[in-house]
Design a protein around this nucleic acid. Structure first.
Length: 272
DNA sequence: CGAACCTCCTGCGGGC
DNA sequence: TGCCCGCAGGAGGTTC
C-alpha cells in the first residue's frame, strides 16, 4: 500500500503525538510480521521517550535513548494513534502504550510489514544501508545520478525507478504517474534514457510525490493516516487504475500493461 | 553484477 | 447466496 507520500503523511501525523512522549509499555499481539518481532523490543523500549520520528524511504524510524524502532508498512500496514482503551482490531499486531493514555498501533492485515528493533545506528542497518537517495532532496537525487545509475541497464525504466537502490519511495502507483508526467513510456530500457529525459523524470518524480504528500497520500482501498483519515490524491491520479479511460493530457485511452508482473498504466499517445 | 521469477499473507470484488 | 479466481499500494530471496 504505502509509498513515500503515505509514509510521510503517517510520519507527520504521529510525530507531534510521539515526540517527547514516554513509551510506558510495548504490547506485541502477533510477532509474525515479515521478520519475527524481537522480544528485546518490549524490554528495551519500555520506559524510554521517543525523541524523534524520522523517515528514510518507506521506513519510519522511532528514535529513543534506548534504541530505534524501524517500521515498514509493507502492502497493507497503517499506523494509528488512539486512546489506549479503544477496541483493538484483529490485525493490530503491535502497540506502544504512551504516557497520557494514548497508544500507537500498527495494523497490517497481510503482515508484509516489519518492526525491527536496533540499538545500533539504524541507518547502517542492513535494511537501510543500501538505500538510494531521497527523491525530495535535490542535493541527493539529481539527473546526473539517475543517468549514471541506469547506464547499461536493460530493465524497463519503470522497474528502475522502483528500485530503492536507485531512488527510494517510488512504488507502483507513483512510478506510472511520474512516467506519464515526464512523457516517458514505462517499458523504455532504463539505459537508453538521454540526460534530458533523466532530468525530466527526476522533476516529474519530485512533483508527483510532493503533490501526493500535499493531498495526504493516495487511498485506493484502505490507507488512512494517523488519525484514521484517508488521503485525497486518488482523484488526482492521471493514469494509475484508469485503464481504458481518457488520458487527461490528450484524451486517448490509457493502456494497462504488465511490467515485472505489476500493473502498469500509460498513454501510448503522450509517452514515448 | 543484472534480470527474471517466486514468495510471504489476507481481503475484496467480479463472474458464474 | 456461495464459491472460486484474480488481483492488490512491497521487497527480500533464489536462480541462472
Amino acid at each position: 500500500m504505502p509509498e513515500l507520500p503515505e509514509v510521510e503523511t503517517t510520519r507527520r501525523g504521529i510525530e507531534p503525538l510521539l515526540r517527547g512522549r514516554q513509551v510506558e509499555a510495548v504490547r506485541v499481539h502477533d510477532r509474525r510480521l515479515r521478520w519475527p518481532v524481537s522480544p528485546r523490543l518490549a524490554r528495551e523500549l519500555a520506559g524510554h521517550s521517543i525523541v524523534a520520528v524520522e523517515r528514510r524511504g518507506k521506513y519510519l524510524l522511532l528514535r529513543s535513548p534506548g534504541g530505534t524502532l524501524i517500521l515498514h508498512l509493507g502492502m497493507s500496514g497503517s499506523l494509528r494513534v488512539c486512546d489506549a482503551g479503544a477496541p483493538r482490531g484483529p490485525h493490530d499486531h503491535l502497540e506502544l502504550l504512551l504516557a497520557g493514555g494514548r497508544a500507537l498501533r500498527l495494523r497490517d492485515p497481510r503482515r508484509f510489514g516489519a518492526a525491527i528493533w536496533t540499538t545500533a545506528d539504524p541507518l547502517r542497518h542492513p535494511r537501510l544501508r543500501d538505500l538510494g537517495p531521497e527523491p525530495l532532496d535535490p542535493a541527493a537525487f539529481d539527473p546526473a545520478w539517475l543517468y549514471r545509475r541506469t547506464r547499461g541497464r536493460r530493465t524497463p525504466v519503470k522497474t528502475a525507478i522502483m528500485d530503492a537502490r536507485i531512488v527510494v519511495g517510488v512504488g507502483n502507483i507513483y512510478a506510472s504517474e511520474s512516467l506519464h508526467l515526464a512523457g516517458i513510456r514505462p517499458s523504455t530500457p532504463a539505459g537508453r534514457l538521454s540526460r534530458p529525459r533523466c532530468a525530466r523524470l527526476v522533476d516529474a518524480i519530485r512533483e508527483v510525490l510532493e503533490a501526493a504528500i500535499a493531498a495526504g497520500g493516495t487511498t485506493l482501498r484502505d490507507f488512512s493516516d494517523a488519525a484514521g483519515r484517508p488521503g485525497y490524491f486518488a482523484r488526482s491520479l492521471r493514469v494509475y487504475g484508469r485503464g481504458g479511460e481518457p488520458c487527461p493530457a490528450c484524451g486517448g485511452p490509457v493502456r494497462r500493461t504488465l511490467i515485472a508482473q505489476r500493473a502498469t498504466y500509460h498513454c501510448p499517445g503522450c509517452q514515448r
